[in-house]
Amino acid sequence: MKKWLMIIVSSLLLLTTACSNSNDSASSKKKGLKHVTVVLDWTPNTNHTGLYVAKEKGYFKDEGLDVDIIQPGEAGADQLVAAGKAQFGISAQESITEARIQGVPIVSIAAIIQHNTSGFASPKEKNITSPKDFENKTYGGWGAPVEKAVLDSLMKKEHADVEKTKIINMGETDFFTAVKRDIDFAWIYYGWTGVEAELRGEKINMVYLTDYSNKLDYYTPVLTTNEKMIEKDPETIKHFLAAASKGYTYAIDHPDDAADLLIKAVPDLDPKLVKASQKWLSPKYQDDAARWGEQKQEIWENYASWMYDNHLLDKKLDSKKAFTNQYLPK
C-alpha cells in the first residue's frame, strides 16, 4: 500500500490533471455533455482502437459524454483512477489483482481482449522454441517479480531451471535494439511488437504463455474505474461502456477503417504497423466471448490463485469485487 500512497499523494501530475479536468468539465457543460477522462496504459496502439473509434465517430457524444483520452504520465492509469483523478483507465488483470490485495479500490469493467496474446519472443537464429531453451540465455524485462515467477512456471513444465536464466532489466530499450545488443529474449505482445517484426522482415520465435498454462490466460488489457464511481455514478459507466463497446465492435467488423481512425487521431503512429496490427488484433477483441468485454470469474480466480501460489500476493483475492460485467450493454 505504501507504494500506491506515495505515488497518489506525491505526484504533481495528479494535481495538474485535476485542474485540467476542471476546465474541460466547464467546457463540456456548455455543450450539454458530461466530461470524463480515460487514461491509457501506454502510448496509443491498437489495444486502444475502440476508444478512438468511439470518439472519432461520435459514439461517446451520442451517449452524452465528452471523453478525453490521455496518456499516462509519472502517475500511471491505475493510480489516477484509484485517486479519482480520472474516471476510467486501461490496466491489466495482474495490476488490478495486486492493487486489490493492497486495498486499492480499482475495478475492471470490461476485457478489451479476451485471451492473453503475450509471450516470450526471440530472434529465430537464437533457437529458443520452448521454455527449456530459456536455460543459459539472457532475459530482458522491466524488473517485476512476476517475470521470474512466469519464467519459472513455464520452465518447470519442461524440467528446466530458472536459476540458469540470466534476468536483466532492459528499461526503456525496445525489443529490436535489446536483442541485438545484450539479451536473447523478452516478453512481448505479438499484436504490436510481433507484427512489427513481421513488417521489418525479422523472424522471431514465440513461446506463448497460454500454450503452457491456462492459469496464465488472464485479461490484458482491461478497462477500469473505481469503487466510488460505481457507487455514485453508475449511469456514466453504462454510457461509457455502451460507446466503447460500439467502438470495439466497429473495429472487429471494419479493421481497416478502424485503423484509419486511429491513425487520424494519433498521426505520429506508423500507418503500416497500425494497419497490420489491427488486422491481426481485431478478431481477438471478442474472440469466443458472448459479447465484447465479458469477463469470467474463473479467469480471475485462476490467475489470482497462480499469483498466490507463486508468492506474489500476501493473501487471496476476493475476485467478485475485482471485476464486474454489470455495466456492459446487454
Rank of each mutant, 00 (worst) to 15 (best):
I101Q: 08
F88D: 03
A82Y: 13
F88C: 04
G73Q: 12
A77S: 15
I69M: 01
V67K: 15
S95Y: 13
V104H: 07
E98D: 04
A99G: 02
E74K: 08
I101C: 04
I106Y: 06
T97M: 07
E94P: 00
I106G: 03
E74R: 12
A83F: 14
V67C: 06
V81E: 08
A86S: 10
Q93A: 09
Q93C: 02
A86E: 05
I69Y: 04
D68T: 15
I69N: 01
I70Y: 00
S91K: 04
G103E: 06
D68V: 14
G89K: 07
D66L: 00
G89R: 03
A83K: 05
E98A: 12
I96Y: 05
S91C: 03
D66I: 03
E94A: 09
A86W: 12
I101Y: 09
P105N: 04
F88T: 01
G89E: 06
F88W: 05
Q79G: 07
E94L: 06
A75W: 15
E98W: 10
A82P: 03
V81K: 00
Q93N: 06
A92P: 00
G76Y: 15
D68N: 09
Q87N: 12
G89D: 04
E94D: 13
A75V: 11
Q87F: 01
G103M: 02
F88Y: 12
A83Y: 14
L65R: 05
E94H: 14
I96E: 06
V104F: 14
F88N: 02
I90H: 14
G76W: 12
I70T: 14
Q79L: 10
Q71D: 07
I70M: 05
I106E: 07
F88A: 02
A77C: 08
D78A: 12
G73Y: 05
I106A: 07
G84T: 11
Q71H: 03
I70E: 06
V81Q: 12
A86G: 04
E94F: 07
A86H: 06
I90M: 15
I106D: 02
E98H: 03
P105D: 04
R100Q: 07
A86C: 05
L65W: 15
I69R: 10
S91N: 03
A86R: 02
A77R: 00
I69P: 01
D68C: 02
D78W: 11
G103F: 03
E98K: 09
S95A: 08
A75E: 10
D68Q: 14
I69L: 07
V104K: 10
I90F: 06
A99F: 14
V67N: 04
V67D: 03
G76D: 12
P105M: 11
V81L: 03
Q71W: 09
V81M: 10
L65T: 04
Q79H: 09
S95I: 13
G103H: 04
E94G: 05
A86I: 05
T97R: 07
F88V: 05
G84H: 14
F88H: 01
V104E: 08
L80H: 07
A82N: 10
G73V: 01
T97C: 06
E98F: 14
S95M: 09
